[in-house]
């Protein structure tokens, strides 16, 4: 069984995880037309390559992002949403108008 590293719990067999699909930035619902929105909901570039994906560690209830090559099934790195150690991660970096601080990050 494949191994995956949960940023909170370390390396675990894949059976402890659930695949949450590709991470995709939501377009502004008010600023996109119907076609753009339908595209966000349904269409994607699913050619193989390195993708950002949601994964969920079941026993601890931890969502995180994995950067994985979908061709080789090789995981390049994993991190909590918005906490890419390289700082290059764009997930969650968009200012959120209702964002508050002091949030609980790992639940």
């Amino acid at each position: 069984m494949k191994l995956l590293e949960c940023p909170m719990n370390g390396v675990r067999p894949l059976s402890e995880f659930l695949f949450g699909g590709e991470y995709r930035e939501m377009p502004d619902p008010d600023g996109s037309d119907d076609y753009e929105w339908a595209g966000y909901v349904h269409y994607r570039d699913n050619a193989p390559g390195v993708k950002k994906e949601w994964w969920y560690h079941g026993p601890s209830g931890t969502w995180f992002i994995a950067e994985r090559n979908t061709l080789t099934d090789e995981v390049l790195k994993t991190y909590l949403f918005g906490k890419d150690p390289s700082g290059k991660d764009q997930t969650g970096s968009k200012p959120n108008k209702n964002q508050t601080t002091g949030t609980e990050q790992s639940i």
Partner: peptide
């Protein structure tokens, strides 16, 4: 909750 970063 992670995406919205709310205090919940």
């Amino acid at each position: 909750l992670q995406i919205w970063q709310l205090n919940v």
